[in-house]
Simulated scan of single mutants.
Amino acid sequence: MKLHASIESIGLIGPGLADWPQAAEILAGHAPWASARTALPPPAGLPSAERRRTSPVVKTALAVGHEAVAASGRDATTLATVFAASGGDGQNCHAICEMLAGDDRQISPTRFHNSVHNAAAGYWSIAARARATSNVLCAHDGSFAAGLLESLCQVAVDGVPSLLIAYDTDYPEPMHAVRPIDDAFGVALVLAPVTAADDAGAPTPAKALARIEVKLTDAPATTLASPELEALRADNPAARVLPLLEAIAAGRAASVVIDYLPETRVRIDVTPTGTHAEGSP
């Protein structure tokens, strides 16, 4: 079975990557990448009380979600969403474990509700006033691929656009020793149905960045030629998207393979549309 969709827009944030236009320049080879800690902006759209309570996980998810939706021109309140992360809020989990290991075991309600895996989805519903359905899933290092498949199934079955938001942030010690994610990385894709005219070979709508066709494969995952960017791809589960984004940034047709399950991966055939993000080549 093959799944099809158009990628209308992208949001991205990560180490040395402030947004998608800057990342597109780097991935296309038109600008160097300089490693730097991910600079997370304040979470837009939230009341001040909620802003103060948000963690890096929520800030990462909201930053890329807002960027992708704004670039697509779609109404965030009506977009179905899929959130994908290999874990929850590691820093908050660490703080709770410290409290439980101490004498004072009174966990604050804020700590508790930020510890659940769907916290980012809840904050997004507030910030974007989103009223459409939302799914939250986890598949360890294959979380981006799992989220992509879920979003594509929604696009195929329901015939409506879907917003995929994938993200993971770093863990403090001692959890970092067994889950060595070093920094925050997030990506968001607005995916839209491919129409009958598209299937017949008509041009993809001008606002789309690319068309993709996705199927399962046992081929090895695609790696990046840049050792530094390859290290970033391998470090964070959400960054497994980078080979796909590299093809889109370069405006070239390509087949890339993304990590999913131990014996099964996801192949993505990318067809450019001739339209690039502002600031990309």
Rank of each mutant, 00 (worst) to 15 (best):
A34F: 04
S125W: 12
A145L: 00
T275G: 00
S125C: 09
A221E: 15
I107A: 07
S55H: 06
T81W: 00
P281N: 07
D158T: 02
E50V: 08
P281T: 02
A85Q: 08
T223E: 15
L148Y: 01
S48H: 10
G122H: 05
A247F: 08
V69L: 14
A210D: 07
G73A: 03
L17N: 07
T77F: 01
D198S: 12
S255P: 06
T271I: 03
P243Y: 09
W20A: 13
E67R: 12
L79H: 09
G274Q: 09
V190K: 02
I258P: 01
R240M: 09
R53Y: 03
G87I: 11
S125R: 13
R52N: 08
I126D: 05
L261D: 04
Q106R: 13
L149T: 01
V58Q: 10
S35Y: 11
E173R: 13
T223S: 14
V82P: 00
I248P: 07
T195R: 03
V270Q: 04
A250Y: 00
I7L: 08
A277C: 12
A132F: 00
R233E: 01
S48V: 11
G147W: 00
E213S: 14
L152K: 09
D89Y: 03
T60P: 05
T78Y: 04
A206C: 05
H30P: 01
L152I: 09
H117P: 01
A188C: 10
T110R: 03
R252A: 14
L27G: 08
S6C: 11
D158V: 02
A28C: 03
Q106N: 12
I268M: 10
A70S: 12
A146V: 00
D218C: 07
A192Q: 11
L12A: 12
E228P: 00
D104F: 09
R211S: 09
E278G: 10
L244K: 10
T264S: 05
E67P: 05
A146L: 06
T222R: 12
L62Q: 09
T78I: 04
N236T: 11
N92T: 05
I107M: 08
E8Y: 05
A249I: 10
D218H: 12
A188H: 09
D199P: 01
E67G: 07
V116C: 05
I248M: 15
I96W: 06
V155W: 00
A234I: 03
G45M: 06
I181S: 03
I248T: 08
S134R: 02
A145R: 01
D168N: 13
E230T: 10
Q106A: 13
R52F: 08
S226T: 10
V257T: 14
V241S: 15
R53V: 01
T273L: 05
A238G: 08
C138E: 11
R265L: 00
A200F: 06
A63M: 06
C153Q: 13
P272F: 10
H94A: 14
Y171R: 12
G73R: 04
G65D: 10
I107Q: 09
H276Y: 10
P205Q: 06
K2Q: 14
A128C: 14
I10T: 05
V187K: 02
T222I: 11
R131I: 02
G65Y: 07
G251T: 06
E25K: 14
L152Q: 08
R131C: 15
I26E: 04
A221K: 13
I7R: 01
S35E: 14
P227I: 07
A44H: 07
K59F: 04
L163K: 07
A177H: 06
A39R: 13
